[in-house]
Simulated assay, not measured.
Amino acid sequence: MVRKRERSTPESAAEMEQRINSFADMADLPRGAAVPDKPAAPDKDAKRDFKSLNLPLNEYESLVLAEVCKRTNRSQSNVLRYALLELAKREGVEI
């Protein structure tokens, strides 16, 4: 026997938008996984395999980088990473 489909009560546009967003947030989760309340903050000491950069430098920039590495006894990657974090700290960037 076929049951007649009944309409639910009409929702406001804001309620409908919230329901759509809630559904979309759960769409990529594995079946049966708990819904996270908010994303966890990235681990600053995590393994460095998330993003890789290829940075073209001119001769002057390359020589400056090499000299800084020599004076601070750091690798080129470490100098660039340190400079990035120091600039972020100076600019007040928080993640």
Rank of each mutant, 00 (worst) to 15 (best):
A41F: 12
D28M: 14
R31H: 10
P10Q: 01
K38G: 04
P39W: 08
S22K: 15
D43G: 09
P39V: 08
A40T: 12
A46Q: 05
G32Q: 04
E15F: 04
D45L: 12
D43S: 11
R31A: 13
V35C: 05
I20P: 00
K38A: 11
K38D: 06
M16K: 08
A13G: 03
M26L: 13
A33D: 07
M26F: 02
R31Y: 05
A46T: 10
E11S: 10
P30M: 01
P39A: 10
E17Q: 07
P42R: 04
P42M: 14
P10D: 02
R19Q: 02
A41R: 15
R19N: 06
A34K: 13
F23A: 15
D28W: 09
D43T: 09
V35R: 06
A40Y: 03
Q18W: 02
A24P: 01
D43V: 05
P10R: 04
D45K: 12
T9Q: 13
K47R: 15
K47G: 06
D28P: 02
N21C: 04
K38T: 12
Q18P: 01
Q18R: 15
R19S: 02
A24R: 10
A27E: 06
K47N: 15
V35A: 04
A27T: 13
I20H: 03
D28G: 15
R31E: 11
D37F: 02
E11I: 13
A14Y: 10
P10K: 08
A27V: 13
M26G: 03
P30Y: 04
K38N: 07
E15W: 00
T9F: 09
P36A: 12
A34P: 05
L29M: 12
G32A: 07
A34N: 08
